[in-house]
Deep mutational scan, measured.
Amino acid sequence: MSYSVTLTGPGPWGFRLQGGKDFNMPLTISRITPGSKAAQSQLSQGDLVVAIDGVNTDTMTHLEAQNKIKSASYNLSLTLQKS
């Protein structure tokens, strides 16, 4: 079951990613910084990142996902799936 979260910026957003197409692993939330915008939302460590700002992550490399997140200036919309 997927869910959506919109973090209001600017960054830093307070989470780290792992995985990506180049690692043959789905993009997942690997760490959440305590007290951060991510920590105050529904994000959980281990959640799968399905889309970033409406763009499906199935074919994204780790770097492409990082760049997509960094390019979000004020709002960052994520679609996630609980692990």
Score class of each variant (00 low, 15 high):
1 M>Y: 15
1 M>W: 04
1 M>N: 15
1 M>C: 12
1 M>A: 07
2 S>Q: 06
2 S>F: 14
2 S>G: 09
2 S>P: 05
3 Y>Q: 05
3 Y>N: 06
3 Y>H: 07
4 S>V: 07
4 S>T: 13
4 S>A: 05
4 S>H: 05
4 S>C: 10
5 V>M: 03
5 V>C: 06
5 V>S: 03
5 V>H: 03
5 V>N: 02
5 V>P: 01
5 V>L: 05
6 T>D: 06
6 T>G: 05
6 T>M: 10
6 T>S: 09
7 L>I: 07
7 L>R: 00
9 G>I: 03
10 P>K: 12
10 P>Q: 08
11 G>F: 05
12 P>D: 14
12 P>F: 04
12 P>I: 04
12 P>S: 07
12 P>L: 04
12 P>N: 06
13 W>H: 10
13 W>N: 03
13 W>Q: 03
13 W>A: 04
14 G>N: 03
14 G>R: 00
14 G>E: 03
14 G>A: 01
14 G>Y: 00
14 G>Q: 01
15 F>S: 01
15 F>A: 02
16 R>M: 13
16 R>K: 14
17 L>S: 02
17 L>W: 03
17 L>C: 08
17 L>G: 00
18 Q>A: 11
18 Q>V: 11
19 G>Q: 03
19 G>S: 02
19 G>A: 02
19 G>V: 01
20 G>L: 01
20 G>C: 02
21 K>Y: 08
21 K>E: 07
21 K>T: 12
22 D>E: 12
22 D>V: 03
22 D>L: 04
22 D>Q: 05
22 D>A: 05
22 D>G: 06
23 F>T: 14
24 N>E: 09
24 N>H: 07
24 N>P: 06
24 N>W: 05
25 M>D: 07
25 M>I: 09
25 M>G: 09
25 M>T: 11
25 M>L: 14
26 P>M: 03
26 P>S: 04
26 P>E: 04
26 P>Q: 04
27 L>W: 02
27 L>M: 10
28 T>A: 15
28 T>Y: 12
28 T>D: 02
29 I>V: 13
29 I>G: 00
30 S>I: 06
30 S>R: 11
31 R>S: 13
31 R>G: 12
32 I>G: 00
32 I>K: 01
32 I>W: 00
32 I>H: 00
33 T>V: 12
33 T>C: 07
33 T>W: 15
33 T>E: 13
34 P>D: 11
34 P>Y: 09
34 P>E: 13
34 P>G: 06
34 P>L: 07
34 P>N: 10
35 G>W: 06
35 G>M: 08
36 S>P: 01
37 K>D: 06
37 K>W: 11
37 K>L: 12
37 K>Y: 07
38 A>V: 04
38 A>Q: 02
38 A>R: 01
38 A>H: 03
39 A>I: 04
39 A>H: 10
39 A>G: 10
39 A>C: 09
40 Q>K: 12
40 Q>G: 11
40 Q>V: 09
40 Q>L: 12
41 S>L: 08
41 S>T: 13
41 S>N: 11
41 S>V: 07
42 Q>H: 09
42 Q>D: 13
43 L>D: 00
43 L>Q: 00
43 L>V: 09
44 S>T: 14
44 S>F: 07
44 S>M: 11
45 Q>D: 07
46 G>S: 05
46 G>M: 03
46 G>K: 04
46 G>V: 00
46 G>P: 01
46 G>E: 04
46 G>D: 06
47 D>K: 00
47 D>P: 00
47 D>R: 01
47 D>W: 02
48 L>M: 13
48 L>C: 14
49 V>C: 07
49 V>D: 01
49 V>K: 02
49 V>L: 11
49 V>G: 00
49 V>H: 01
49 V>T: 02
50 V>Q: 11
51 A>W: 03
51 A>Q: 07
52 I>P: 00
52 I>L: 06
52 I>A: 01
53 D>K: 03
54 G>V: 00
54 G>R: 05
54 G>Y: 06
54 G>P: 01
56 N>K: 12
57 T>V: 10
57 T>H: 01
57 T>S: 08
58 D>H: 12
58 D>C: 10
58 D>A: 11
58 D>Y: 08
58 D>N: 10
58 D>R: 09
58 D>L: 09
59 T>A: 13
59 T>D: 14
59 T>I: 08
59 T>R: 09
60 M>L: 10
60 M>N: 01
60 M>A: 03
61 T>Q: 04
61 T>I: 03
62 H>C: 12
62 H>T: 07
62 H>G: 10
63 L>Q: 13
63 L>C: 14
63 L>I: 09
63 L>G: 11
64 E>S: 06
64 E>R: 04
64 E>D: 14
64 E>P: 00
64 E>K: 04
65 A>M: 05
65 A>H: 00
65 A>N: 02
66 Q>K: 14
66 Q>H: 09
67 N>R: 09
67 N>F: 09
67 N>Q: 13
68 K>P: 00
68 K>T: 11
68 K>Y: 08
69 I>N: 00
70 K>G: 11
70 K>I: 11
70 K>E: 13
71 S>W: 08
71 S>H: 09
72 A>T: 15
72 A>S: 11
72 A>D: 12
72 A>I: 14
72 A>C: 07
73 S>C: 10
74 Y>P: 15
74 Y>R: 15
75 N>I: 10
75 N>F: 10
75 N>G: 15
75 N>Y: 08
77 S>M: 15
77 S>R: 13
77 S>N: 12
77 S>H: 12
77 S>C: 13
77 S>T: 14
78 L>E: 01
78 L>C: 02
79 T>V: 11
79 T>H: 11
79 T>R: 13
80 L>W: 02
80 L>A: 08
80 L>D: 00
81 Q>S: 13
81 Q>D: 08
82 K>W: 05
82 K>N: 08
82 K>C: 15
83 S>P: 14
83 S>W: 08
83 S>D: 08
83 S>A: 14
